[in-house]
Design a protein around this nucleic acid. Structure first.
Length: 426
RNA sequence: GGACAGAUGGCAGAGUGGUCUAAUGCGCACGCCUGGAAAGCGUGUGUGCGCUAAUCCGCACCGAGGGUUCGAAUCCCUCUCUGUCCGCCA
């Protein structure tokens, strides 16, 4: 959520930044301003009446004690009470309207965010490694996984539906090995604290990180209990400190969490959906940071480096791109995507999206810390990034390490977790 | 799922219709005292919104929402959460 004070004090700056995203969202700033002015006028009026009521009510109490007749005064105050009710309805309505508008306005892209209309304009920041060459026709992961019996696509459909899969045998163990490897790397080498949060979250948590109210159609909802399946660990983990004033000395707070992620992917059918690439349920190890505002840009670089380390250790070729103003996510101020090379696809696949949300999420979830110098409560900055998503990593791994004989070699760093050096046909 | 009890400031805890502008204690900060410290003494110490150049000041908040009343932390209703016991259960 954007700071209403910033909107009030510098509406042109806010509009200009929002305009860079493309579309028409920036126009709603004028609506916010007019409602804000109306709201404050009504609020001031209401408070004036309330102060008057309190004063007169005290006089009535005093008068009764002294045995005076207070009937006239009571009738008068009752009238004030009725006016307060009317004003209260009004301010409440305006409050809600303003909140609703603000929740629907995306974050302002950071001033350093590259300008661009869509994904085509995202600049490449760097590359690591080489596109692997094969002396034989490279297969795609679906073929490899089926031949080695690692993933049962049909069973997933039978048990649940399309875009759900069942991992089997060595295939299941490989997934588990990857999760353990990722968590150990980030907790032991990068200083993150491991958390294992609930996979179901409430609406307040989703509003806090920005999935609600705008993206309800992308979420699985359990109506009976009004809970949602988390689309990413970002939601339960960032909300760990919702409505808290955290101790400044604990910043930056760094969490790593494994969770499955559940996404309806409404409207995405048929687009890059082959095999494991786009599923309704996939595993992910997520990195979340909560820090002081002045540190968030540096923390974003570190977070991205932490995620990149995964691909470096696994020996997978990747590139980092930065999302331009037209492609950046709803709540993000600045985002790097890490894309791993998938030889069987002949393309890069997004395995991590590392974002600095500034104070956008923190304001939505009332997450603050007390500034040591000013003694003021300041909204923290929040960041998150995948470290990394598992399914596409799995794709890149099978496709990169496939051998001419149909086997798949397991990278060195995974062997302690997987227990073997390769996967061969049974 | 059922029964009973409870939810008040950073913490403990009083308050059951009218200076509650929330007692008291602990903690914390600052000051006095001291050679220095402890103790003691004094002062201060929540969140949000409104007003304002800012301070002041004002309004709201005693788990959440609604109601009764001239006036609600206090009375009534609904809900949530916590504790204890029972039931069910990996």
């Amino acid at each position: 959520m954007l700071d209403i004070r910033l909107i009030r004090d510098n509406p042109e700056l806010v509009k200009e930044r929002l305009r860079r995203r493309g579309g028409e969202v920036w126009r709603s700033i004028d609506d916010v301003l007019s409602i804000d002015a109306e709201r404050r006028a009504a609020e001031t009026e209401k408070q004036r009446h309330q102060a008057e009521r309190t004063r007169l009510s005290r006089e009535i109490g005093q008068g009764r004690k002294e045995g005076r007749d207070t009937a006239d005064a009571e009738a008068h105050v009752r009238g004030i009470g009725e006016e307060i009710d009317v004003l209260d309805q009004r301010t409440r309505g305006l409050d809600e309207r303003q909140e609703e508008l603000l929740l629907g306005i995306p974050n302002m892209p950071h001033e350093g965010c590259p300008e661009g209309a869509d994904a085509e304009a995202n600049p490449e920041v760097r590359r690591w490694g080489q596109v692997p060459e094969f002396a034989f026709p490279a297969k795609d992961h679906v073929t490899i996984a089926k031949e080695l019996g690692l993933v049962d696509f049909e069973a997933g459909v039978r048990v649940t539906g399309s875009a759900f899969v069942v991992y089997r045998g060595a295939g299941a163990k490989l997934e588990r090995a990857l999760i353990s490897f990722l968590l150990d790397l980030h907790t032991e080498q990068h200083g993150y604290t491991e958390v294992l949060p609930p996979f179901l979250v409430n609406a307040d948590a989703l509003i806090g990180t920005g999935q609600l109210p705008k993206f309800a159609d992308q979420l699985y909802h359990c109506g009976e209990d009004n809970l949602y399946l988390a689309p990413t660990a970002e939601v339960p983990v960032t909300n760990l400190h919702r409505e808290e004033i955290v101790d400044a000395a604990t910043l930056p707070i760094k969490y790593a969490a494994y969770t499955p992620c559940f996404r309806r992917e409404a409207g995405a059918a048929g687009v890059g959906t082959r095999g494991l690439i786009r599923m309704h349920q996939f595993d992910k190890v997520e990195l979340v940071k909560i820090c002081a505002p002045e540190d968030s840009m540096a923390e974003l670089e570190l977070l991205t480096a932490d995620a990149e380390k995964v691909l470096q250790l696994l020996g997978l070729h990747y590139r980092v791109i930065e999302l331009c103003t037209g492609d950046i996510g709803f709540g993000s101020a600045r985002t790097y995507d890490i894309e791993v090379w998938a030889p069987g696809q002949g393309t890069y696949l997004e395995v991590s999206s590392c974002s600095n949300f500034g104070d956008y999420q923190a304001r939505r979830m009332k997450l603050r810390y007390k500034d040591a110098e000013t003694k003021k409560n300041v909204h923290c900055h929040t960041l998150n990034g995948s470290g990394t998503a598992l399914a596409r990593l799995y794709v890149a791994l099978l496709e990169t390490y496939q051998q001419a004989d149909g086997s798949v070699v397991i990278p060195e760093v995974l062997r302690p977790y997987f227990g073997r050096e390769s996967i061969v046909k049974a």
